[in-house]
Design a protein around this nucleic acid. Structure first.
Lengths: 212, 212
DNA sequence: CATTGCAGACCGAACATTCTGTTTTTAAAA
DNA sequence: TTTTAAAAACAGAATGTTCGGTCTGCAATG
């Protein structure tokens, strides 16, 4: 327990904690890379271990089971991805980080269509059938979803009369993004994906109205 | 080879062929069920065999490898799903099977949000990282995509000036559907999915104009 | 009777997990 | 300050299971 140390000096982080955190970060980064490159089915502990360049002991010490590993990696991804995009939490205030009409394109390019975004989709798809993994993640997923939606709702209103229309439109957009990540395999021309994205953004932007 | 038999009497199908086809159908149905219920990662040959109630020998006799099994199952799903919905191929002519403004909702309810639809998403997601599986399926996927799109293009035009706008809108819709299948895990209230679907259909229907 | 359809045992590889050691860190005792 | 003992971080071998695929034997079909 490090609580004895932190009780005397709350700000102090011990060498242990620093090393442990660095190790965890390293392992989780390997998980993201493996999920992105090989998919959930082929992301084995052996592969993660090899990719991270750590021993089997180190892996199982920090993450007793594979699900715990995937779960923590996912939560780290979520919290890392949410913060910089939509709001500046460091200053305590919520303000858009990008021009309003570029919200969709920007989200796609910098959040969804990334190694983390693709890894996240692998986890989400796995959650559909892996009940245990879902149980571990469910609360955090829904909390993240609510937080993400309310951030949008503070910045935009929808074209529909419904109070929560902006949130609805945002959920629809994120859903489209998720589908778009798996659409690559259908089309021969990658540029077609960009056309789909642009057309979709054009349509949705007509319904997402900046509050002011 | 059965060509010797069919050369003499093309309509005749031997007992063998009937049995073989029945066995294949049975196995593929089990694959669909397993993909839907357990996901691609947990769809093992053992599980399929158990689910279908056939021996290991029968399985490997008809499908030498797992990829061949998944590939054929996928192609059967595709061809079974395309036909009844958008056109009546038995009469040779192409006509819509549902009212125009119900195309999206109907596709969602009767094609995408089914055991086959969910199984298909599992395969598509796996294709992203499983290059071998993708290579087997790529041609058929793109051919199916083109056929599906052109069927839509014959029935609708898009609100945009682009010649292929209807196809683009249809691709966008199918992409949204795919994402929606994995969205269940985000929301606590299942009715929210229906709201998303209705709102999306409302928006897209304004851009999909029936030809006439 | 030759071929195909099917049954089930079997194989090595890979899997997730558990385990026994070794090293490093840390806080309190000397 | 130095010593010390416990705890944590890590290493890597061992375990039993399951994986996809192969192989041999037998029955049904043509």
């Amino acid at each position: 327990m490090s609580e004895a140390a932190t009780r005397e000096n709350p700000a102090k982080v011990s060498k242990k904690e620093i090393k442990a955190e660095a190790m965890k970060r390293r392992i989780c980064a390997a998980v993201v890379a493996c999920l992105d490159e090989h998919g959930y089915a082929e992301t084995s502990i052996n592969r993660i271990q090899e990719r991270a360049g750590v021993s089997r002991g180190a892996l199982t010490h920090h993450f007793p089971t594979k699900q715990a590993l995937v779960a923590e990696t996912t939560m780290r991804m979520l919290h890392a991805a949410t913060r910089p995009m939509y709001a500046d939490k460091s200053t305590g205030e919520t303000k858009p980080a990008v021009p309003a009409d570029q919200l969709l394109n920007n989200s796609w390019n910098h959040i969804v269509n990334t190694a983390e975004g693709r890894a996240f989709v692998e986890v989400i798809v796995a959650c559909r059938t892996d009940r245990e993994l879902y149980n571990v993640l469910a609360d955090d997923l829904q909390e993240w979803d609510a937080e993400s939606s309310s951030t949008i709702a503070a910045l935009y209103r929808g074209s529909d009369a419904a109070e929560d229309d902006a949130e609805l439109l945002w959920s629809i957009s994120r859903t489209f993004f998720r589908g778009l990540l798996t659409h690559e395999r259908f089309v021969s021309d990658p540029a077609y994906l960009a056309r789909m994205m642009d057309r979709f953004a054009g349509i949705m932007n007509a319904h997402l109205i900046v509050r002011g």
